[in-house]
Nucleic acid binder design. Structure first.
Lengths: 339, 339
DNA sequence: TTGTAGGCGTTATCAG
DNA sequence: CTGATAACGCCTACAA
């Protein structure tokens, strides 16, 4: 049997479809008698309003699109959860899409969002060329960036204090006595990579430390990339005594490289990474990390989107910069004495 | 300016909307002349078909709903990624909803899926009473269960060989010399908990080992729950020498309890858990775990759903049981000599 | 307070 | 091959 429609309910209750709609939405007043009849009919038929029809009619889908690099990365998982919680609280659902930072796949996801007329889009770590994005915003679709923002595209962003956090963390390393540091960075084109690298450089510079060019590696994102980059750094004739990693996956890769090479942490190298992970406290040694408030980044992004939707006239809100949390554990120590 | 509609394209190209639809879908042949005019018009207007209208008209949304306990749990993240990849490959998108195993929230998610008329639903670790689910399936919505299935509800499931895997793992523990084992299990109502517990019991029984009642704890799901349960077990007058944990979160909790209590692993207790995590190899000590093929569980679930959608007449497919992978690391060893 | 009816953007059926 | 046109299910002026 076909799903009951609003017409079936109206017929059974002996009222017009408009009345049914009214009692369902509770917008306009309806007499108690009719209300009751409608409610009975709804119950009897097990009527469920069709959100697709409603969306078409209202021009609103109550859907938020979330584009992430990879929903199986715990960082994005937390962001997604934050976004979802806030979205659901506001009567929205979320459509997720993973891109693997593959521009083609990313375009496909964005195209799907547009075609489905989601009401807003949250973009995380996008690689999209700004033209694609500008076309989307131009169509009036609210958009918010999480984690980083592409150059010259409008829309607020929810960011972490990348540079400052990196700088502080590296200062800590320097305070421990390190004078020869390395960074496993991300692709130069990523704003976050640039910012964290800038923080790294700034901390070194203000301490009068110079950085060997071969000690700044642009790793391909992913555990494998981190591992390779770390290997290369550790195989230098005189390897650095401390390594700062751009993100969680690269950090895990770096860690695994030390294991495979039998290099002791923090005995021979200190290791510090952006992004915390649930198990970092239990790793051998517990990993010192800069924790981003991922969940909160998600909720803030949703809030920005919902605000924009509730108040389309409002001018563009400012970016939101959230503080990170520096969690000192045991993977960093004083450098080993040089022979 | 409003988004261009199919009518705008038709007008500009001087054809009927039907023709536009035909060249867009490439279903029915269209003369080259018209095709070209339509394509030009589409390009000129930047026309993007409205998927909502299409869904309403066709009665198909090309949407799959995925209900998980928590999208920020890496296990579910992997499942989601697998489902997404397979879904996208088949022209579908995925709508996610987290329930925290809260029945009310779960009903809300399912209701939203129904209202949005997703084409199929994948359920992971659901707590839904079967009546809710049966109503859904009764409406003809394809449904597949991941990880476990509720009692008496139709629909295929993608499962792991829970009982056998648990049994084998516990046999390993017993082979190490343990005779006094404990299990931190999940809620008795979860089928997976029952199955893994059954495997645990079976392995003990066949080795002639008895299990102390106080050594089987039903932990509340979550790290905190695992930690509490582990504490209680370790505070026994004569604590067990090996503990088997129901899942990743409980395992992490158990591990953290040993840390806090200063209990050595595997020196004083051996620890073994269902579900692997990226960092388990790096934990101190590396955690021995039963790895479920989470990503594959997602792709298989999508395949089941897409098959059902492509072939509605087909009879109900059989469950898919995927093998788990037992990864022996260092958190298990021979029991300490009893004084 | 209630009903009528047109419209949302596509698809599909049915003539030509 | 092409064009009208009636759905799809709901919302919302507008009228009563």
């Amino acid at each position: 049997m076909r799903q009951a429609s609003i017409r079936d309910v109206a017929k059974l209750a002996g009222v017009s479809t408009a009345t049914v709609a009214r009692v369902l939405r509770g917008t306009t007043p309806v007499s108690d008698a009719l209300r009751e009849r409608v409610e009975d009919a709804v119950a009897k038929l097990g009527y469920v309003p069709n959100a697709v029809a409603r969306s078409l009619s209202r021009g609103r889908t109550q859907l938020l699109g979330l584009l992430v690099a990879d929903i199986s990365n715990p960082f994005f998982g937390e962001v997604a959860r934050g976004l979802e919680d806030a979205a659901v609280a506001g009567g929205y659902q979320v459509l997720v899409g993973s891109s693997d930072l593959n521009p083609e796949r990313e375009r496909a996801v964005l195209a799907a969002f547009e075609s489905r007329t989601v009401d807003g889009v949250a973009l995380t770590s996008s690689t999209a060329d700004s033209s694609t994005l500008r076309k989307l915003t131009a169509s009036g679709m609210p958009m918010v960036f999480i984690d980083r923002r592409p150059a010259d595209v409008a829309g607020p962003a929810v960011l972490c204090d990348n540079e400052a956090a990196a700088r502080r963390a590296v200062q800590y390393l320097i305070g421990l006595g390190h004078t020869d540091l390395a960074m496993i960075s991300g692709p130069r084109t990523m704003a976050t990579a640039a910012q964290r690298l800038a923080g790294f450089r700034a901390a070194c510079a203000e301490a009068g430390l110079s950085i060997r060019p071969e000690c700044v590696r642009e790793g391909y994102l992913g555990i494998e990339g981190g591992s390779k980059a770390m290997r290369r750094v550790l195989e230098l004739d005189t390897p650095p005594t401390a390594v700062f990693s751009f993100n969680n996956l690269l950090g895990v890769g770096a860690l695994s490289a030390t294991r495979e090479m039998g290099v002791e942490v923090p005995g021979e190298v200190s290791l510090l990474t952006f992004d915390d992970m649930t198990l970092f406290p239990f790793v051998d040694p517990p990993v010192t990390a800069i924790a981003q408030p991922a969940y909160q980044m998600g909720t803030e992004a949703a809030r920005l989107l919902l605000d924009a939707l509730a108040n389309p006239a409002a001018e563009q809100p400012k970016d939101i910069v959230l503080p990170s949390d520096f969690r000192i554990r045991s993977s960093c120590a004083a450098p080993p004495p040089r022979p």
